[in-house]
């Protein structure tokens, strides 16, 4: 006999997020007032609105608080080593080009230890979406300084204030060749969703930075209050500047935050470049994983026609 469902069980089952989350793993490990959950919600909203086959979506994360996203999301998912989410995602995408591969990871993971991979994936215009949850700190290890920590901010390894110059991630991504670059704060959940929707449709390296509060470490060490205070700051001091010159969107300690879609341009992706190049050099017999380019194109066309027919 089935036992009647408790409220929590019913909630797990009936929550619309149950399509996107491994509900059996809830509640999650993130702190009160943390913004990662909001980013996950916004990502799920974007997936809901997309016409993607959910079986063809993969989530790859590195290490850290945001690194746990892959484990919570109900997709093919890989929780990898520190900094290596992007090369794992690259391998997955290239080995299985039908996949829509999304990397969700933190600022330290993606641009500190994984910085080399970040710049090269952007340079190659690798067809993956990278969502960077930027909370200006290494949360999981206790609030150390990261490559994005604003100068003067306090971190556990800069206990007298940070004296380094931080990365401005949109500028870095843009300079390295990313073809879609956007920034929002975790308060702007609808905008994050819209940007992720655009990024999922975009062909090539898309990068979305989301400024989020780390209440337990960054905010506490810098006496910035709780999650609500962080969102208030985002509310009061953010400004939407679509198409802004990425050289001018750096963030200083508690400064104005410029956000919006900064870069949106078309360029052949890595795989498109590979295929076009070899089709030119080798001709029609060139093939990838058992299929020649004409075969692939015919298949794609048939698929598109089938999709249109079903609509």
């Amino acid at each position: 006999m089935n036992a009647p469902m408790t409220d929590e069980e019913r909630f797990r089952k009936e929550n619309p997020m149950s399509e996107f989350l491994r509900m059996e793993r809830m509640p999650h490990i993130w702190c009160p007032g943390c913004g990662i959950g909001t980013v996950v919600n916004s990502f799920a909203e974007a997936l809901k609105k997309s016409d993607l086959d959910m079986d063809k979506v993969a989530v790859v994360s590195g290490i850290g608080c945001t690194g746990r996203v892959a484990g919570y999301m109900k997709f093919d998912s890989l929780h990898t080593t520190h900094g290596r989410a992007i090369p794992v995602a690259t391998g997955l995408k290239l080995a299985n080009p039908d996949m829509k591969v999304v990397v969700v990871s933190g600022d330290g993971d993606l641009t500190g230890i994984g910085g080399n991979h970040f710049i090269h994936a952007a340079r190659r215009n690798m067809d993956i979406t990278v969502i960077c949850v930027n909370n200006f700190t290494y949360g999981m290890t206790g609030g150390q300084v990261t490559p994005t920590t604003p100068t003067k901010a306090n971190a556990s390894t800069t206990p007298y204030g940070n004296y380094e110059y931080p990365f401005s991630l949109p500028f870095l991504a843009d300079a390295c060749g990313a073809t879609y670059v956007a920034r929002w704060t975790s308060l702007h959940a609808r905008n994050i969703t819209n940007s992720i929707s655009e990024a999922l449709k975009h062909k090539g390296f898309s990068f979305i930075e989301v400024i989020t509060p780390c209440t337990t470490l960054y905010a506490r060490r810098n006496r910035l209050g709780d999650g609500l205070d962080a969102l208030q700051y985002y509310h009061d001091d953010s400004e939407i500047v679509h198409g802004a010159d990425t050289r001018e969107v750096d963030i200083e300690f508690q400064s104005k935050i410029k956000m919006g879609t900064f870069v949106h341009r078309e360029k052949p992706t890595y795989l498109e470049a590979v295929n076009t190049h070899y089709a030119n050099v080798i001709g029609d017999e060139y093939q990838l994983y058992g299929k020649t380019t004409p075969e692939r194109e015919a298949e794609k066309k048939a698929q598109e026609q089938a999709n249109q027919g079903s609509k």
Binding site: A89, T90, L94, Y289
Partner: peptide, 27 residues
């Protein structure tokens, strides 16, 4: 390109082996 495979020269050896993990789970 003649046998239907893909070669990528990664940015370093760390990326190379990481890409293998993704590639293997990609099938």
């Amino acid at each position: 390109p003649h046998v239907g495979g893909l070669f990528i020269q990664m940015e370093d050896e760390i990326a190379s082996i990481a890409a293998l993990i993704g590639g293997a789970w990609g099938g």
